[in-house]
């Protein structure tokens, strides 16, 4: 018999290491053609930091996005970054990039003040130009500034770093600590159909909504929300490193044993959305949340299975074997 059920999972997710001690650095340099190189150590594994960090730098410097290249191919010679993990890059590296851009803007202003013979406070860096406020004839394009600075024997490099605080331990008395730089929230609702004869679970509908602080790029958020959902379905239903543990002889050998979701496993209805409540310390209000996109579908599906057939599956994944065993035990 096929039975349907609905399950809910909610979650929270911090950005970066618990308790801080998790810095990132960034460097931005003005090039002779008036474009910029952004250097940092965050690796883009597909989450899109090469886009987002350039967006933040372009926003702060008020220059076109395509005028900024992002260079992160060498973590040895590049600025320090503890890594791409714990949904930390937008928050930590984003703040470092904003600081580096602000630092470079100040240096451009100081250089222009000397050139225009005015106070740095009167120099504006905006719209890909450097100019004296209220004096239209005292204006240079960024390309002109880049050429004059670099061919004039100067090198303007903005640097920035960010950490939410030093690393810290739990208070042994109370267990308390300031654990998090930011906390994002999420919710997933899954509707499933369980075949009680075969134990096969079909996910009919999956809805995921995340509170992200401020979305730096809505398209990237959508990709991560949907991608995380597909991972979560795999964690909940198919992915198992040791299906017949404790006998390691039966550990998975390849992708026919370790079954990840394919396009054919997409629920017929998938909904994703975000809620934005800007975080006071996040770059332009952003939080780190991406890892959580993969965390909620699994529990929501297991809850939906319970709702459908009245038995709890307490181990991932909810394979047909586990479901049939649980049903047998319940009816024994």
């Amino acid at each position: 018999m096929k039975k349907r059920g609905i399950g809910i999972a909610v979650g929270t997710h911090p950005a970066g290491l618990k308790g801080g001690g998790d810095p990132s650095q960034a460097q931005i340099r003005l090039k002779p053609d008036g474009t910029f190189d952004l250097l940092n150590g965050a690796v883009d594994i597909g989450q899109g930091c090469k886009t987002i960090l350039r967006q933040l730098a372009a926003d702060e410097l008020d220059v076109p996005l395509e005028n900024i290249t992002h260079q992160n191919i060498d973590t040895d010679t590049g600025p320090m970054c503890t890594g791409t993990f714990a949904s930390r890059v937008t928050f930590m590296d984003g703040n470092a990039v904003l600081a580096a851009a602000a630092d470079l803007k100040k240096k451009i202003r100081d250089w222009a003040a000397e050139y225009f013979e005015c106070s740095p406070a009167d120099v504006e860096v905006a719209n890909n130009k450097v100019f004296v406020k209220g004096v239209p004839e005292k204006s240079l394009s960024m390309a002109e500034v880049g050429a004059m600075v670099n061919w004039g024997g100067k090198f303007l490099v903005g640097t920035g770093a960010y950490t939410p605080g030093p690393g810290q331990q739990f208070d042994p008395e109370t267990g308390k600590m300031t654990a998090i730089a930011s906390l994002a929230f999420g919710c997933c609702v899954a509707e499933v159909e369980v075949d009680t004869e075969t134990g096969v679970v079909d996910v009919l509908k999956l809805v995921q909504v995340f509170e992200v602080g401020k979305a730096m790029n809505r398209l990237l958020c959508k990709g991560q929300n949907n991608g995380g959902a597909m991972m979560g379905i795999g964690f909940g239903l198919t992915e198992n490193v040791c299906p017949y543990y404790p006998t390691m002889d039966f550990a998975v050998q390849d992708l026919t044993d370790y079954v990840i979701t394919t396009a054919a496993d997409m629920p017929p209805v998938m909904v994703e959305d975000i809620v934005e409540v800007p975080h006071p310390n996040g770059p332009r209000g952003a939080k780190g949340y991406s890892e959580m996109t993969a965390s909620l579908a699994g529990p929501a599906i297991l809850n939906a299975i319970h709702n459908a057939i009245g038995v709890w599956i307490t181990d991932y994944p909810a394979t047909p074997e586990r479901i049939l065993k649980a049903l047998e035990a319940a009816h024994a």
């Binding site: 990709g223 949907n226 991608g227 992708l255 394919t262 997409m266």
Partner: peptide
């Protein structure tokens, strides 16, 4: 038919929605 056409291509990032 699109889903079937790409169902032999695994994507660990889970980009299937966007690919379709």
């Amino acid at each position: 038919q699109i889903v079937e056409g790409i169902s032999g291509n695994l994507c660990r990032c889970g980009t299937y929605v966007e690919v379709v």
